[in-house]
Design a protein around this nucleic acid. Structure first.
Lengths: 130, 130
DNA sequence: CTCCTGCTTTGAGTGCGCTCTAAGTCAAGC
DNA sequence: GCTTGACTTAGAGCGCACTCAAAGCAGGAG
């Protein structure tokens, strides 16, 4: 079927390894992927969107466990919309907090780096006055 | 000596566990801590600042390995100022990039959450028209 | 003196998220 | 038919950052 992808193609398209894709299916992040006559996986084109979303969640630090919860809810259909929204919202809040924390720390670090620069300046003047 | 702290006190002050403090010393994040007659650790008050800085670096996702490098440079004195600055700068850049990435993802997620909200709205109108 | 608590050490165990190995299957190319 | 190479599976292994266990000692309370 057109739009059908081998695990290799999906790996290349997503940047995940074939190992990881199998692992994701095993733990339920991906619903069981179709197989060809030889038992090889054939991904649907729209699986790519889902995988991209999974990558987005991972990049935001959502633990695999929670992503599995989300995936399970998704499989249960429209009746889980609210539950899914709540799950995402919870993580969204954590991410916003994490961003704020990182930003504060980054500012402190930046100040420290600047200080180091000044200390190096001073040291070089001390060694080579004028 | 005044300003001398037991491992328990340092744990409480920093939020790290006593286990973790011993671990940090073992791997060289903390230079060897003084002991009392009974072999028990006695932290100096200024160790707290260093530990706080370590926590800052950890919270920014610096790997322990790099923190050890930094700690080793620090022990080698003023001649390593530039090397330390470079190490921090490298991590600072990574953090800024990570923040940008998180922010972008958070925005995408926010949009998705909003969409979920609208879908729930629409569904409830469908079930209870007018 | 005995008991208890809190520390000491070395080294093993844990949870996470992959990552890889081993052994086997299948389809294509020579 | 045989080889090659990409795939399959179940399950083991890895790197990180802790976290805990076991065995033992030091000092204080009773």
């Amino acid at each position: 079927m057109k739009g059908d992808l081998s695990i290799r193609e999906v790996a290349q398209a997503t940047g995940l390894s074939a190992h990881t894709l199998r692992y994701y299916e095993r733990i339920g992040l991906l619903s069981p992927v179709g197989r060809d006559a030889g038992g090889r996986r054939r991904f649907a084109a729209r699986d790519l969107d889902w995988i991209a979303f999974l990558q987005r969640l991972r990049s935001m630090g959502m633990p695999i466990r929670e992503m599995c919860e989300y995936a399970a809810l998704r499989r249960d259909g429209d009746s889980t919309l609210a539950a899914r929204r709540i799950l995402l919202q919870k993580h969204f809040d954590r991410v916003r907090q994490e961003i704020a924390l990182l930003e504060e720390s980054a500012n402190v670090l930046e100040a420290k780096i600047k200080l180091y620069g000044e200390m190096e300046e001073a040291a070089s003047h001390f060694c080579h006055p004028e």
